[in-house]
Nucleic acid binder design. Structure first.
Lengths: 342, 342
DNA sequence: AACGTATCAAGAAAATAATTTGCAGGAACC
DNA sequence: GGTTCCTGCAAATTATTTTCTTGATACGTT
């Protein structure tokens, strides 16, 4: 991909200050190329679909870069953040009026955030907002079925959105490599949610030809951890990050030089206990009735992991998958387009 | 809410044709008020947050109303649908040029779709598109970890989006009522995916104080179905809709007048076998490596169901949840903000 | 410390570009 | 043959951006 960032003279304008986005992009210590990609995705408006760059949204940029903005710009940012519906619908004049600044200031504000123009800014905003907005306005409007459904769907989409934003791609890749090369995989998790994740890991990975067992039983976990070899991999999930037994299992495994992978909250005991941590940090609402959308995020991580493993060991996986599929098809009926398994 | 749709003279313009959206809105047999709401949500640009109306997107409108559009308008719609990135970034002139029509035609096109203006159209488009776009462009760009992650996240969000669009809220409500009133619930599902859903149902519903058991064992399912009473409820999941054993279990239950609920593809054998069907109809991609994002949609249905049940039996649920939480907290450490279970 | 210079923010006004409206020609459909 | 509707043109309107200017602040020099 050729990076001809800032085509046209309008982009940098007269001053030489780099886009804030450019500065942001390398923040998380990720691969540098991603940073370049992001900026390019913003600056160019060619037929590039919404890439990772598209996901690194104005919303976040505004919040994070608030400190670097001027007084007037902060006022604009606040209005946009607070009354977002107004912002996407308003004209530059209306927005300027509400922020008590002149229209040019708004244009400059947009430029500074890496947009080409005011309308580009609005588009970026609208694009992010559909999903990203709701986490600012937590609770459902009513308990009418339609509202509840809407709320759950939006929350789930948000969870995915936030997951993606905070995703440590490099860590996932390392984890996938470990799993792909493992002689045996142990997947641990307890409690309704994490045990589901462990089972899910098994469900995904055995199809790829991996040897894997899942357990939600603490005692078994400890014994398995003790029995594991350095050529194996132990992967464990804990939503709370405070599953003390899992921590013990990790410790045991690490003593025996068994690679360990944790899906959990970062900076938690479980996270510290594992060699590779795949962090999932999401805010949970207060509604105790509401099932956690966090699970969906965890599931997505499992999906990503499994996909990467699949690509790593492609030839082997194809054969196994085909065999399973074949078996299912003949077992049921001849519709080849059915899902793999039920 | 006061419905002053079409404020200002610009809205209807000179011709009296009602907005297509207005016609659409009552299509699915939903509550009429929702229809009104939708139009109002589009037409007014007050501080109303993205409601259900906001989800009923331009994209769908364009696809469904294609037949009613004029030649020129169809050309515009096609360009927007195909090269969506272009459409959100382009000015009205560029878009008009590409569609070989005049700018006014584009404006009229937007109006017809229920937008106030071209820029309103772009905003609506951008808003929907973030999520809704990808299902048109199926496969991931590369197998680089970042792309794979992006692909899976987007697909998952899309699955949720499509689920929501096709959701039969009335059916879910009926199902929730049935579950809330059941003396005992049997949750069935086989194969990695559906058995997870069954387990998940158990995991969600037992916390609300319901008596529930999950089984992925065909023989057990049959026996349980035979043993169930009319005051119980049988709920089963089948991604493929072709789980013959589940069909048999449903048949058995219905003979004994036991209410049956199915989470499955509509118009499938399983769907026909159950009294209430909660349809989940999503297109699956061709990439056999890719884990099904459909699971996430099913999980969302479970969430919605569980939430509704929770609201129905609120007092009881509060007590049970509190007890479980209490137990977990004392069992771990004192951090009350932890998730409910791991 | 005081002065001068450079730098930057921000508004006013002008210029430009985009969008909408009114109108009229023309095609399709009764 | 009349009506209706689609469509483009050109004018009018409106929105956005650029340019220019002013005032404020920070920095370096004497």
């Amino acid at each position: 991909m050729v990076v001809t960032a800032c085509h046209g003279s309008a982009c940098m304008g007269t001053n030489d200050k780099p886009h804030l986005l450019a500065r942001l992009s390398t923040g998380a210590g990720g691969i540098d190329e991603i940073g370049v990609d992001r900026v390019a995705a913003y600056v160019s408006n060619v037929t590039r679909p919404a890439t990772r760059g598209g996901l690194m949204d104005i919303f976040t940029t505004m919040q994070e870069e608030r400190g670097r903005l001027s007084q007037s710009e902060i006022r604009i940012a606040d209005i946009v953040l607070n009354d977002f519906e107004f912002a996407v619908n308003a004209s530059i004049i209306e927005l300027a009026g509400k922020a008590d600044v002149s229209p040019p200031t708004v244009t400059r504000f947009c430029r500074r955030l890496g947009c080409e123009s005011f309308s580009d800014f609005k588009v970026q905003l609208a694009r992010t907002a559909y999903v990203g907005m709701r986490y600012l306005k937590p609770e459902p409007k009513s308990i009418a079925p339609a509202d509840v459904a809407q709320d759950i769907i939006t929350k789930a989409q948000n969870a995915l959105f936030l997951l993606h934003r905070g995703l440590d791609v490099a860590a996932i890749e390392r984890a996938a490599n470990r799993l792909a090369g493992a002689e045996m995989v142990y997947a641990f998790g307890s409690g309704g949610n994490s045990s589901m994740i462990a089972t899910e890991l098994q469900n995904r990975l055995f199809r790829l030809g991996l040897r894997i067992t899942a357990s939600s039983d603490h005692s078994m976990q400890l014994m398995m951890a003790a029995a594991a070899k350095p050529t194996d991999v132990l992967i464990g999930s804990s939503f709370s990050g405070r599953n003390a037994e899992l921590v013990r299992a990790f410790a045991l495994a690490r003593e025996a030089k068994v690679p360990t992978i944790a899906l959990t909250q970062s900076e938690s005991p479980v996270a510290h206990a594992a060699e590779i941590t795949l962090p999932v940090d999401l805010p949970e609402g207060d509604n105790i009735y509401r099932p956690t959308s966090t699970r969906i995020a965890y599931l997505a991580v499992v999906d990503i992991l499994a996909s990467l493993v699949a690509y790593r060991i492609q030839p082997q996986a194809t054969v196994t998958l085909r065999r399973i599929k074949q078996q299912l098809v003949t077992h049921r009926d001849g519709d080849d387009r059915q899902l793999l398994g039920d």
